[in-house]
Amino acid sequence: MSEAKVKQEGGEAAEIENRVIELCQQFPHGITDQVIQNEMPHIEAKQRAMCINRLLATGQLDLLRSGAGLLYRLKDPQTAGKMKGSDNQEKLVYQIIEDADNKGIWSRDIRYKSNLPLTEINKILKNLESKKLIKAVKSVAASKKKVYMLYNLQPDRSVTGGAWYSDQDFESEFVEVLNQQCFKFLQTKAEAARDSKQNPMIQRNSSFASSHEVWKYICELGISKVELSMEDIETILNTLIYDGKVEMTIIAAKEGTVGSVDGQMKLYRGVNPITQPAGLVRTPCGLCPVFDDCHEGGEISPSNCIYMTDWLDF
């Protein structure tokens, strides 16, 4: 009884597989399991899954993850060609790496996903690397770890350190320039609001700029070689808050408002310091590095203090 079924299934399986491939050709962006189900409603889920797995294992289909769920896509014949000669395990590992897109994946996670022993994985990775199918990229998050991704992909910024890193070097100057530019923008806006002499409410509201506004201004300035996101600009704006030059407020915004995220918008404006520098820092003692060693009669004392002398002579 089971034999017959298997034969039947086998024939059916091939047909299912072909149908799936046809569907994939029809929908090059990929199809979900649901689509296959709709197309062939009489097939049991178990059967469907088996066919799909076979197609995946033989390298005819790609597995992708999307917002809608799992997607099956026809594999690119080029890469499919390259895969010729690799065994299934390699294909599996390759697929896993491909799924990780440009964010890459640690070897440990590859092991977890593929259930293959580590030694096997390492062999495969070496192999794939030599075939120039994949590459290893150092992650800025943990300098000793590497992530693997497809050879021709541009690594995502979270791997390389984002806009602020260039070859693992933190771009202090660049950050500084952005910091200054953002501040200038906000300062100008605040001044304009003050000079407008409108009623206080309007003045205050017009002194604010959303992070989106600032982001747009910076992009238009064209000073960045890298593409900056609004979030990137927000991290810069935050440093201005810690510089005591800018303050932020969050307002509710309707979904879909330009620059809003999750129903909120961040607004920033330039502010003045509330006090002048303290009296203490107007004296050499306030800044003195040897203050604790200073006492009358000692090697370092008020009467022989060089800092005082310089300060008095100035």
């Binding site: 440093t239 810690y242 510089d243 005591g244 310091p273 509330i274 006090t275 520098p277 303290a278 203490l280 820092v281 306030g286 800044l287």
Partner: peptide, 22 residues
Amino acid sequence: TATLESLVQERFGSRCARIFRL
């Protein structure tokens, strides 16, 4: 607090003051 910030700023510079305020 502004006085404390002022001290850090003038004695150790703006980067340090930023960290202090942070």
